[in-house]
Every structure is written in C-alpha cells, then in structure tokens.
Simulated assay, not measured.
Amino acid sequence: MEADMTMRDTDRQGEHGRESARGEEAVEMLLQAREKDLGGFSVRRLLPTAKRTMVGPWIFFDHMGPADFPPGQGITVRPHPHINLATVTYLFEGEILHRDSLGSVQPIVPGDINLMVAGRGIVHSERERPEVTGTAHRLHGLQLWLALPEADEEIEPAFHHYPSSDIPMCTVDGVPLRVMMGSAYGVISPVRTFADTLYVEARLKAGQCLTLPKTSERALYVVSGALRLGRRILPEHSMAVLYPAWSVVVEADTDARIALIGGESVGERFIDWNFVSSRKERIEQARADWRAGRYPLVPGDEEEFIPLPD
C-alpha cells in the first residue's frame, strides 16, 4: 500500500515510571482510524498520525476492509517504490498477488505473512489474480511498515514469504493467539526482525481476559468487537497506545479480534509518501530517483506505475 504523509516523530513521550498498570490508567493515548481512499477501495489508517508517528519500530498501520468486490473488480495497487523500511502484510480474508522488482511473484492468502524488505530500494505492486477477480470476493487484512534500524536502512532488498503453517499458535487463558513476529507467551516467531519487535493477533470471546506481554513500547488495535480496560471501553477500529507497564489486562466486552504491536524505538524517522528514512536528504534522493525513472521495473507488471505525488 502507499502512504501520503510527511511527518517527523518529534513528540515521543518518555518511559512511564510505573511497574504495573491495570485498566484505563494504562492508556497513554487513544487513536481513531482515518479513512483513506486508495482507488477502488478504502483503508483505515492508524499510523502515522500527528499525535503519534511510531510505536516501537512500527511506523505505518493500515486496516484493509473488509471490502466486498463484485465480479470484475478488485484491488489494483500499481507499482510504487519504498526505501529504508519493511512491509508486513497479513490477511484475514481474500487474496493479494504480490509482485516486486526482485522478480518475486507470491499470492498472499489468509494466515500467511509477507515480509518485503525495501532496504536501499524496491518497487512492488499489489493486485489480484484473474481467478479471484472473476467472481464476487472479499478482502480483509492488515498492512504494516517497520522502520529499519539505521545500520540496516540501506541493505539489499529482499522478499520473505511465511505460510500460515509456519506462524506459531498458542492458547493463553483460553484465548487462541498467533505470535506473528518476535516472542511472547513463551513462543518465538520465525519471521525475520531487525530490532526488538512484537506483533501478536488474538481472538477473544465476550468476557475473556488476556494479559498483554511486556515490551518497551506497545499499542493495541481492535480489529473487530470491543475491549474493556478497567472502566474504559476500547471501541472497534481504535488503537490504544499503552504505557510500558509490567502488567496490562484487557477484557473482551464483546467477541473481539485484536492486534498487538510494539518493540524498541529505532529513533526519529522521516516519512514522505512511500519513503521512510532517518535522513531527510535520503528521502529527497528517493523522490528524485522515482521522478527520473531510475528504479527497476516489476517483471510482469511493467506497463503502469503510481506517479510521484506533488
């Protein structure tokens, strides 16, 4: 997917001094999703915002759908570039066909994780196979971006696909969950990370409780349903940025699906359109390179591209 913001992460708050927090006191801020039209379908964007640019290494968070398409329609995200970041795509329903300038061609289906490492620069497109667009279908999922640590910003681009069967699952207090990246609840994900990174998905029945794992920065997104933190309700499509407390317990007010992200800060980042970097001049160079056509083409998808926005 593509972003459309230019922002600096200058308002980060320091570590919270408490060693434990339960209930509404654990919430540093509550972010509400903003609708973004990506041409043919819309997404709910949680990060970045004016109030909060990053949570740990995570700098971008889009909730796609659920979007229902009639036969003959679907997502058509034309080739576009990225630098100094890694995209993480995860679907609940539907399928996306990923192509990139490395020659990767990979359908993404529910439960899989696609990790595309842009490094010094990559181009990719996100479309759907004719077999999918030929019938009525639904798309629902999350796409996130990781800012790479400064030492890894200019590494060689790479693409990693992890099938659903490789993503570890466990049950905690009766709650089924998946540890998608990093480690939590005694489980370690095989998905590559570049800094201390956490990404967990869980589904709670109404009344179930879950103690969240500790990490230096974290945020909880309500994909569906509603959660309770003490007397505070976290509604559907909201993201609670949490203090780094030792103990935070959430309770499902209704049946709910949640995503927890977090990890260590990698420092200040600039973000402009699809470019993320610790150096503003690097983004200016990336813009100039895309404008001048100096990026590689995507094999099998060479005819179209997204122009550089003004």
Rank of each mutant, 00 (worst) to 15 (best):
I83N: 06
H16F: 01
E128D: 05
M239N: 05
M1S: 15
G39D: 02
T76G: 00
E24F: 06
I122Q: 13
D11N: 08
S189R: 11
E15P: 01
R192F: 00
Q73P: 01
H16Y: 14
S277I: 08
V109H: 04
A184I: 14
G174W: 15
I83P: 03
G74W: 07
G230E: 02
M64F: 06
L204T: 06
Y243K: 13
G111Y: 12
E154M: 06
V222P: 00
P149D: 00
R257L: 01
D272H: 10
G56E: 00
G17K: 00
Y199D: 12
E95M: 06
P176S: 09
D289T: 11
E304M: 04
H160M: 11
G111E: 14
A118W: 13
P48D: 06
I233N: 05
G182T: 07
A21P: 08
G225A: 00
I113L: 15
W273G: 08
H80P: 00
P296V: 11
R45G: 00
V27F: 11
C209M: 12
T49Q: 07
V172P: 02
K280W: 06
I306L: 13
E251D: 05
G186V: 09
D4G: 07
R52I: 03
S247W: 12
A195Y: 02
S277A: 10
R257D: 08
R138W: 12
M169N: 08
V109R: 15
E128T: 14
P48L: 12
I96T: 15
M54P: 01
F275H: 09
T87Q: 10
C170I: 03
G40Q: 02
L308R: 13
I113V: 14
R231I: 03
L204V: 10
R8A: 15
A252F: 07
V250M: 02
S101W: 11
E131R: 05
H16N: 04
L177R: 09
I59S: 08
D9K: 12
H160F: 09
M54A: 03
P81M: 04
T135Q: 05
P81N: 08
V266H: 11
C170K: 14
L47A: 04
D173L: 09
S277E: 01
D152S: 01
I306E: 04
